[in-house]
Amino acid sequence: MSPERRAVSIAGRPRVAILISGRGSNMAALIDAAPALGYEVALVFSNVVDAPGLAVAAAAGVATAALDHRGHGGRAAFDAKVDAILAAHDIRYVALAGYMRLLSDPFVAAWAGRMLNIHPSLLPSFTGLDTHARAIAAGCRVAGCTVHFVTGELDGGPIVAQAAVPVLEEDTAETLAARILAEEHRIYPLALAALCAGRLRIAGQRVLGG
């Protein structure tokens, strides 16, 4: 551990890993906000070895690691290797930011209450993929994004924060996605900071504090 990183840890900034599979738009927002919000992005990990977000993280001075998810003997075996990488970097909290993997039950259990995800819909509506097109097709007047704790249910964990935007008559999936993405970049760092500061408490499906 470098002297600078050791000083940050002693100062009490919780160490966060961000897991990505692609360009890392939300990852970049989390990194940019970290100094002001009191957490340290100590690692960016990807299951795609050439994910563009890895270069973005490295340029920001964040340690990176990558491991192709293929050829490890199954989902749980791969996740165990990811967990070992997180442990080697002394990670306390995990933020998923476009990590296109279904997580194994042991991994989810190991990080229960310490792992967040950002989803581009107002959950519990429109879990899964193609959320913006589905919201438009359904005639929704509002759409948005959700930060939630990760559980074994896809996009089903307790909700930490949400932001809504109007669905305009002329919207396409792309234009709606762009406006929602701006809100994702706003609420995800705030939600992660609240988790790292110990301000969140899960009570059933509700999250108290913030």
Rank of each mutant, 00 (worst) to 15 (best):
L67T: 04
V82I: 11
V94R: 02
A60E: 07
D50A: 07
G53A: 09
T64K: 11
L67W: 06
V82G: 06
V49D: 07
H72Y: 02
E40V: 12
L86N: 12
G61Y: 15
A55S: 15
S46W: 11
A58E: 10
P52Y: 06
A76L: 06
I85S: 00
A95F: 06
G98R: 05
L37T: 03
F78N: 03
V82T: 10
I91K: 07
A33R: 14
A63E: 12
D32Y: 10
A84P: 00
R70K: 14
A55N: 15
I91H: 08
A60M: 13
L103H: 06
D79K: 14
D68Q: 14
Y99M: 08
A63D: 12
A65I: 03
D83R: 02
P52G: 07
A60Y: 09
G38N: 13
R92I: 01
A60L: 08
M100P: 03
L103K: 09
G38P: 05
H72K: 06
P35M: 12
A95I: 01
A33C: 11
V82C: 03
A42Q: 11
L103S: 06
D79E: 14
V44A: 10
D79L: 14
A80E: 05
D32G: 15
A88Y: 09
A59R: 12
A97S: 09
F78Q: 04
G53Q: 13
R92M: 08
E40N: 14
V44P: 10
G53C: 08
H69Q: 04
A66P: 13
M100G: 02
A84S: 04
A51I: 11
D32C: 07
Y39M: 06
G71C: 04
A88S: 15
G61M: 14
L37V: 02
V62C: 06
G74E: 00
A88V: 08
D68T: 12
A60T: 04
A36T: 09
V94D: 00
R70S: 13
L102P: 01
Y99L: 02
F78A: 03
R70G: 13
R75G: 04
N47I: 14
V82S: 01
L96Y: 12
Y93L: 11
P52D: 03
A84C: 02
A34Y: 10
R70H: 13
P52F: 05
A51F: 12
A55C: 14
R101Y: 03
K81N: 00
I85R: 11
F45V: 00
L67Q: 05
V94C: 00
K81D: 00
L103M: 10
V82L: 15
R70Y: 12
A57Y: 09
Y93H: 11
S46D: 06
H69E: 05
F78R: 04
R75F: 03
A66N: 11
A51T: 11
D32K: 15
A60K: 14
